[in-house]
Amino acid sequence: MAHVIDNPVLTVEHLSMRFGGLLAVDDLSFMAGRQDITALIGPNGAGKTTVFNCITGFYKPTEGCITALHENGEKFLLERMDDFKIPKIAKVARTFQNIRLFGGMTVLENLMVGQHNPLMIASNYTFGGILGLGGYKRAEKEAIEFAKYWMAQAGLMHRADDAAGDLPYGEQRKLEIARAMCTKPKLLCLDEPAAGLNPRESEELNKLLLFIRNEAATGVLLIEHDMNVVMGISDHIVVLDYGKKIADGTPEEIRNDPSVIAAYLGVPDEEVEEVEQEIDEIEEGASS
């Protein structure tokens, strides 16, 4: 029943993550399309953030294989890379549930930190930067232009020189996404980007994410509880419960999947067998 994708940007194969006696992620396999918005959903404690932490190098998975694929066919085994190389070389960026901006720095500087690596090379590891060589100045100017481009997309132009910590919550969220985009990722992983946003801000977030998919041609993998966001913009949904994948498909398929409904809403005790039977039938139907 795995949703097959022709041109994935990320493949996760048989991923397991064990913390002592707790199996947080259990034999999870899924793919994320290159120009898709893939949503990872599930009840609290289903292991979604653990999957993110494995993808971005916070945890070394107990078992399994996580691969990032670029258009030119290059493959990167993420579970074997140092954490800073995942955004630098494999081009996978992420944000967190809680906001982690550099609060003391301005909005523009936050976006410039995202472009650290190309600037470091352009400045000959700072020596050229001190001497003010032409190459560095040009690179710096380009970096500012690129930062402005994402500031405009996130609607933060008027805030460029304000300290990031002084922005209202909704703008901080968008700045985080813009900063992640400044690393020029192939895959952007967002952990609950809509958490705490009001409906208008959530609408703006949807637009920004669609822009990232359509115009910046970047794959998005997101964890989200806000079903407006999930059902509204995702192309593909993976549902986790207790670390296991219980469904994988388009929003339509997921909406009508009884196992997903059972996991989310729970079922009364007397109906458990009934539902299980139904699930078995569907699984048989899918495998046959």
Binding site: T56, D83, F84, K85, I86, P87, K88, A93, R94, F96, R100, F102, G103, G104, M105, E109, M112, V113, G114, H116, N117, M120, R179, A180, T183
Partner: peptide, 18 residues
């Protein structure tokens, strides 16, 4: 900028490729 970023949040800095 990288130094100031590391000062504030080392983990986040490394996730931006620093």
């Amino acid at each position: 900028r990288a130094q100031r970023a590391c000062e504030q949040d080392r983990k986040m800095a490394s996730l931006l490729g620093i």
